[in-house]
């Protein structure tokens, strides 16, 4: 099963993601901040990562940088899911190694189709 790791400090967003992603047949894992997210990444070995930007302990940029340049660097797709939509933030995320950027609130169908495209996941 395709594994998704969602990193977001909002329990509500994590719950919503769980419902839509599990419904679409993904194996769902989550973490509530950047530090836990990076830890979970090693543990879970997901096929795709969804991360928020504004989080305590380590923000989304930190997550992307750690996953892209840290000792366990990875090439799995990392999608930023945030309420922010500023162009400079997007550029920063891209330069750090983000694969895509989705603005909250997200639409279940579109999110799932994006994830499918990135992972080749079939239901």
């Amino acid at each position: 099963m395709t594994k998704v790791l969602a990193i977001d400090d909002s329990r509500t967003i994590r719950n919503l993601l769980r419902v839509s992603l599990e419904g679409a047949g993904f194996e769902y894992h989550s973490a509530c901040d950047g530090v836990e997210g990076v830890e979970q990444f090693t543990e879970v070995e997901p096929d795709v990562v969804i991360t928020d930007i504004n989080m305590p302990n380590m923000d989304g940029f930190g997550v992307i940088e750690t996953l892209r340049t840290g000792p366990n660097r990875t090439t799995v797709p990392i999608i930023v899911l945030t309420t922010e939509s500023g162009a400079d933030l997007k550029t920063r995320a891209r330069n750090a190694g983000a694969t895509g950027w989705i603005v909250k609130p997200f639409d279940d169908g579109s999110l799932v189709s994006v994830l499918r495209r990135l992972t080749g996941h079939v239901v």
């Binding site: 909002s10 509500t12 967003i13 928020d52 305590p56 309420t83 909250k104 609130p105």
Partner: peptide
């Protein structure tokens, strides 16, 4: 200040999901 910002931000994020 960051913590305050995040609190407001998280409320906004969740509220958006419920319209």
């Amino acid at each position: 200040v960051n913590a305050v910002f995040r609190a407001v931000h998280s409320i906004k994020g969740g509220a958006g999901a419920f319209g």
